[in-house]
């Protein structure tokens, strides 16, 4: 055992320098030439800069709503609800979200609401919604902003991100980008 202690400590220190120092320096260097320079990708509109990958809270009727969030879209404290599928409190919460949605979108049938609009995401920062989740909000926003439903449907179509390589994964819409474009429409 004794013969091993000193080499163990010395080897640990060498690893410390190599992996915490040199490895991270290499990755930091690589990140500098990426878009965003290692500080997260952003988009700028009207002089304001936003992180394009982070979801934001959208609750007013004039914007497309984002998904419910257990973290209230606090990007300094990501969190899921961690509620189990049979938890009565959780099921009551989902029911309340459905009711709220129907109050704000009276023309929509219960069966048209997709599940992502009434469930909280894993990170609490989900930047996306499904295409159906955007479509069910068209009538409300058209009325609120005096826009034609066709224009809004087209906008949604233009902002739909197809699956990776066209065949792998989900179709989705970045809510922030959609809402930024919505503001441009007027």
């Amino acid at each position: 055992m004794k013969n091993n202690i000193l080499p163990a400590i010395r080897l640990t220190l060498v690893c410390l320098v190599f992996f915490c120092g040199i490895y991270t320096a290499i990755i930091w260097g690589v990140a500098q030439v990426s878009s965003g320079g290692g500080k997260g990708q952003t988009i700028t509109q009207d002089g304001k800069t936003y992180y394009s990958n982070l979801g934001q809270n959208f609750t007013s009727d004039q914007y497309f709503w984002s998904r419910p969030s257990a973290a209230s879209y606090n990007s300094a404290g990501s969190s899921g609800s961690n509620k189990g599928p049979t938890n009565p409190d959780y099921l009551a919460e989902v029911q309340a979200r459905i009711d709220t949605f129907l109050v704000h979108n009276p023309e929509i049938d219960l069966a048209q609401i997709p599940s992502d609009l009434v469930t909280a995401s894993g990170s609490g920062l989900d930047p996306h919604i499904s295409v159906q989740a955007a479509l069910v909000q068209v009538k409300r926003i058209a009325k609120k902003r005096n826009l034609s439903e066709t224009d809004l449907t087209n906008l949604i179509q233009n902002h739909t991100e197809s699956p990776l390589l066209g065949f792998a994964g989900t179709e989705k819409i970045n809510v922030l980008q959609l809402n930024l474009a919505l503001d441009q429409l007027q």
Binding site: S81, K83, P114, H128, S130
Partner: peptide, 10 residues
Amino acid sequence: MGSMEGKEVR
């Protein structure tokens, strides 16, 4: 979409 509680749309 399946069970979406705790899952990300992407």
